[in-house]
Design a protein around this nucleic acid. Structure first.
Length: 270
DNA sequence: CCCGTGCCCTGGCGGC
DNA sequence: TGCCGCCAGGGCACGG
């Protein structure tokens, strides 16, 4: 569930806590989180310093020269800073830091993944090289040209990180509502104006959500356990049965591309 | 290349 | 109260 605004909030929080710290030990309690052999992973990172933390789409990139540790939190991945090595059965990776504390990767669903790349050019190789631009950097005419050749639901397209990156289920629903476009509208029927509106709406929604520290529904909190505040700004997502804030028609829930999807059928047209 | 489906996981919830 | 079954969901492998 962490999408771009939550990952950016985590990046900022984590940076203050661990920038400049060196890794002095690593414990891996569940090795499927890491797509490298465990011993290689440890020997590669131990003794090196966390110089910076970047973010590309929903990926967190811990810059540990000469390596970049790419982390995708997927549904419920979280980072904590603790004084003990492990305090939960859901703590899967524990990095001992040179100040005596531990950077802990915690994930109830075990969906998150970590992978190593060299810190030079790490954005130029998969998986990051395959990502589309963030909405704020996207050229809507390019996106329109791509989408008019396809026939998928616009929601599915916006969730596809190869088209644009950073949006997940919450912000796609909000983007579509803000744009007045139905999630099932086929991409080959989107007008140039539709796509321009979608990119502009996505940019605004993501920007506003970052400003408010992300959205806390379900289990998301940042590395300090601080909740975001964008859930108070949601217009349709999680609002089934409630009146649309614009036209007062009842918001409905349906499935689009296998995802729970909230829509105002009066404001959002196919 | 394009598109749909199923898988990975497990806490939580609905149903009885 | 207790237990069973099923769902959520990002990304990717796979098959048509």
């Amino acid at each position: 569930m962490p999408e771009l605004p939550e990952v950016e909030t985590i990046r900022r929080t984590l940076l203050k806590l661990i920038q400049g710290r060196s890794i002095v030990g690593i414990d891996v309690f569940y090795d499927k989180i890491i797509d490298h052999e465990t011993n290689d992973f440890k020997t590669t990172l131990i003794g090196k310093r966390i110089e910076a933390i970047e973010r590309v789409g929903k990926y967190l990139c811990l810059m540990i020269p000469p390596f970049a540790l790419l982390v995708h939190l997927r549904m419920e991945g979280r980072f904590f800073i603790r004084d003990v090595r492990r305090s939960s059965a859901h703590d899967h990776v524990s990095f001992a830091l040179d100040d005596g504390r531990f950077l802990i990767y915690h994930d109830t669903r075990k969906f998150g993944r970590m992978t190593l790349r060299t810190s030079e050019h790490y954005q130029d190789v998969p998986p990051l090289s395959k990502l589309g631009p963030e909405p704020k950097d996207a050229n809507w005419e390019d996106i329109h040209a791509r989408l008019k050749r396809r026939k998928i639901a616009v929601k599915t397209a916006l969730l596809d990180q190869h088209v644009v990156c950073g949006l997940g289920n919450i912000y796609v629903d909000e983007t579509l509502f803000k744009s007045g476009i139905h999630p099932m509208k086929r991409t080959d029927r989107l007008t140039r104006n539709d796509v321009r509106t979608l990119i502009e709406s996505a940019t605004t929604v993501l920007h506003d959500a970052v400003e408010l520290g992300g959205t806390s529904i379900r289990t998301y909190t940042d590395a300090l356990g601080v909740h975001g505040r964008f859930q108070n700004e949601l217009k349709v997502h999680t609002k089934a049965g409630e009146p649309c804030p614009v036209c007062h028609q009842i918001i409905t829930k349906q499935t689009v591309g296998g995802r729970g999807t909230y829509v105002c059928k009066s404001c959002q047209k196919k």
